[in-house]
Write a protein that binds this DNA or RNA. Structure first.
Lengths: 340, 340
DNA sequence: CTGAAAGCGCTTACAG
DNA sequence: CTGAAAGCGCTTACAG
């Protein structure tokens, strides 16, 4: 039913080699035949089978992406950048959710390998050694997006988490806040956990503000509910705080919800600075002042880098750190800057 | 470098047919040889090439999905359901953003066709006749998710938009509201536009409340900014309204932002009911009371349906309408029910 | 410039 | 039960 190169050859009265040539190297075949072939292609609605091509070229123009959960705004923003970069270079993306599950990840890698994808972008998760071994075994290039690995020599693109967290805290301090709490992800998380905690604490320290992981920080998993609880605990142990650094937009929204439910005004009573700057940050009440990660760019650059590797271009730099920034909106108030 | 079935055959001292059999039909080969083959497979890290297989079987276990913009919470929630359904049945998804662009859509369909995908799920956009022709030309099955077509005989899964909008309005009315505005998407939109407007107006009418498209509705494109403006216009022309029906979460958040910026309290002064119930709905301040679309299920069911078609199962029903519901949270207040 | 042939990595009748 | 052969739909040297 689907017509093949043979059908076209027959109809145009040429060999399949010639058909192949007008497809890949038109200028090399005489105009007369070329026309006939083109016509036959039209008539038969012929389009080449990418599987057959892939088999020969050992290239599928398809990339695999592993991502914890697409239904999350953070990841889907990164993904959008990947998609655009892929589309621009004639590639497609097979997207797989990992749910942060080790086994699922390795089974995904195997399937992607069987499908002969040209490379993989590994998003937002630390690389376990099992997966790293698979990379070697399968032999496709891998780029890390919104994560990196110090243990393995893997190209990556992300922001400098610690500095970004530092900047968030400093932003608050410069606006006169000295009692500052933090809602963090799990301390064990090598991306959104301890680097941000370290940055936060370092800022307090640099500005001579007393505070430590024990008394200034509460931990919540990623989700809203956990963070709401974390905020309530934080408020209980730091009742006189005037500002909170929430290490994700979702945590910031949870913090605001808690404060609102307890008739504490944001930012009048307590300021909140967020992290990530997903689209939600501009849609909340009040709008979130946030450390912005260039989510789209991270995704875009990661696949651009991957495609470079696939094309055998010499790698520019192994670990790329992109710039973050602070987007000022309405969730932080000025305390009458305390002399800094 | 990647080992092939030949390498395995050589190492195990059997023919490639036998290797193929232990892969696909192990019980048919004698244990002794089977073991040798299995061992060789291990040693060589062999895994079959899905392209070669696909070429023969005319099946790639890969589905294409067209979606306007993955970085949107609505779509990404639907996508998550698709992903899970695909994964469960051993399929992968190639995801392509259309940006609601006709040309991009047809170029995507062509590429997917060349890659021999087994079917396509078309998400959330009306089907133009050009695309419909392509479906026929390419000959793969298509299922529509979160959209449908009355013009073409295409399987689909979505909610009943009109009834859902009706229910939203009725919900407000039953709580004593009689001056109700609506923030709608473009009236021309066959999914999120006129069906919801019609449902809204029909409810007003059924309950004997005066109102019409002219004076009770403002239109904004999907995005936050437009809707904020729409809300300001709506408020200007309907200053005594006590409730708003926003036809998406993003519109509801925009409405709330506008109201907040103008010191109008939600829900005390004006209630807001939303539509969609994406994850944001539970994270805002106040939390959104919303008509919930079963986003995940829509995606899940759409690919389940597609896989059924691919497997040649008799189609159950062409157009599936899934149930919506109303999730009560904090953005609607009771007006002391007006006798209904 | 063009065709016949070999080959990409598999599966599947067909003999035996 | 198993191997040789044909074939899936292409591309690419190799002759001519």
């Amino acid at each position: 039913m689907k017509s093949t190169i043979k059908d076209v050859a027959r109809l145009a009265n040429v060999s399949i080699s010639t058909v192949s040539r007008v497809l890949n190297n038109p200028e090399i075949v005489v105009p007369e035949k070329r026309e006939k072939v083109l016509e036959a292609i039209q008539r038969l609605h012929y389009s080449p089978n990418a599987l057959a091509r892939g088999l020969i070229h050992k290239r599928t123009q398809t990339l695999g992406v592993l991502i914890p959960d697409i239904s999350n705004l953070f990841y889907s923003a990164v993904l959008r950048g990947m998609e655009d970069a892929a589309h621009r270079s004639g590639n497609n993306l097979i997207i797989c959710n990992t749910d942060n599950n080790r086994e699922r990840r390795s089974s995904i890698l195997s399937v992607l390998n069987e499908k002969q994808i040209d490379g993989v972008v590994w998003t937002s998760e630390p690389v376990d050694s099992g997966s790293y071994e698979l990379f070697g075994k399968f032999g496709f290039p891998v780029v890390l997006a919104a994560t990196h690995s110090l243990e393995f020599e893997l190209p990556s693109v992300k922001i400098d988490e610690e500095q970004a967290a530092y900047d968030a805290a400093e932003y608050l301090i410069r606006r006169g806040h000295t009692r500052i709490g933090m809602i963090s992800g799990p301390a064990a998380d090598p991306i959104s956990g301890h680097p941000r905690i370290r940055g936060f604490l370092r800022a307090l320290d640099d500005y001579g503000i007393e505070g430590d992981a024990q008394s200034n920080i509460e931990y919540g998993k990623y989700h809203f509910e956990n963070s709401y609880t974390a905020m309530s605990k934080l408020y209980a142990k730091l009742p006189d705080m005037t500002a909170v650094f929430a290490s994700s937009d979702e945590r910031a929204l949870a913090a605001i919800s808690f404060l609102h439910d307890n008739r504490i005004k944001v930012p009048d009573d307590i300021s909140v600075i967020s992290f990530d700057n997903t689209r939600m940050a501009g849609m909340s009440t009040p709008r979130l002042t946030a450390v912005a990660q260039p989510l789209y760019d991270i995704g875009y650059l990661a696949v651009a880098k991957l495609i470079g590797l696939i094309n055998g271009e010499p790698p520019q730099q192994l670990r790329t750190y992109v710039a973050h920034s602070i987007v000022e909106r309405d969730s932080v108030s000025d305390r009458g800057a305390g002399g800094f």
